[in-house]
Amino acid sequence: MNRINVISKKLYKIGLVVSLAIFLLFIFYDIHNLESNSKRYLSDHYISEGVQETGAINIVTSVLYDYRAFDTLGEATVLLTAAAILSFLVPITKDKMRGTPFTIIVSQTTQVFIPFLAILGMYLIFFGHLAPGGGFVGGVVIALIPILLTITYRVEFSEYKFKPDKKKVSEDIGAIGFVLIGLLGILTGSNFLANGQANVSLGDAGELISAGLIPYLNIMIGIKVGAGLAIIFNSLIKEK
C-alpha cells in the first residue's frame, strides 16, 4: 500500500509540473506571436541618448548606476543583509578546516596570482563605465583574494590578514558611501542619485574621468561587494 501511495504522490507532482510546462509553452507561444519587439522605445532612448545623458559608453553601467541606480541600492542592501545574516548565523568557530595540505607549487602560485587579481579587480572597477565590468564584477574579483588565501592557507591566516571586523566596517562604509554620493544630488538642488541632471560635469565620454558620479558609485559598490562576498565565503566555510 505504502509503495502505491509513494508512486501516486510522485505522479501527482510530475503531473503538476508537466501541466505548468504546457501552460508556460502556450503562454510563451502566444507572447512570441505578438511581435512585441517593436515596443522598445525605452531601450532605444537609452541607446541613442544614454552616452550624452550619462557620459558612460557602457550602457549597462549607465542603466545600473544612473537610470536605475535605486535598484542597485536595493540589491546592495540585499547583499549586505545576506552577509549580516551569515556572520551571525554561522559565526566564528575555532576549528581547523579539513582539507589536504597543498604542495609548495600551489602556495607559491597563489602568491604570484594575488597582485594580478588586485590589478584586474581595480581595472574592472575603475573602467566600469568604459568597458565590460563594473563594481559588482570587480568586487567579485577583489573578493577572490581572501577566498584564495582561505583555500590555500586556511581560514585563520585569511582572517588574520583581513580582520572580520574590518571587512564588516568596509562593507558598511561602501553602502553608506553609495547613499552619500546619492545625497550629493539633493545638495545641489536636484533629486536623490541625480548625476548629469544635477549639473555634475560629465566630461568627455570615453575618458577615464568622465560620466560624473558613476565611477565613484562603482568604487563604493566594489568595496561593498568585495567585503560582503569575502564575509559570506568565510562564514560558510568555517563551519565544520
Binding site: 541600492l73 542592501t77 549586505l80 549580516a84 571586523d165 564588516k168 566596517v169 562593507e171 558598511d172 562604509i173 553602502a175 553608506i176 547613499v179 546619492g182 545625497l183 539633493i186 533629486n191 536623490f192
Partner: peptide, 25 residues
C-alpha cells in the same frame, strides 16, 4: 517632496551606522 525618498534612505543609513557602531563605538 524630498521627504519621500528620505523615508527609504533614513532606515537604511541607520542600519549601516549600527553596523559600524557595533565594531567601534
Amino acid at each position: 517632496m524630498e521627504a519621500a525618498v528620505w523615508v527609504i534612505i533614513l532606515p537604511l543609513l541607520t542600519a549601516f551606522f549600527i553596523g559600524i557602531s557595533k565594531v567601534y563605538v
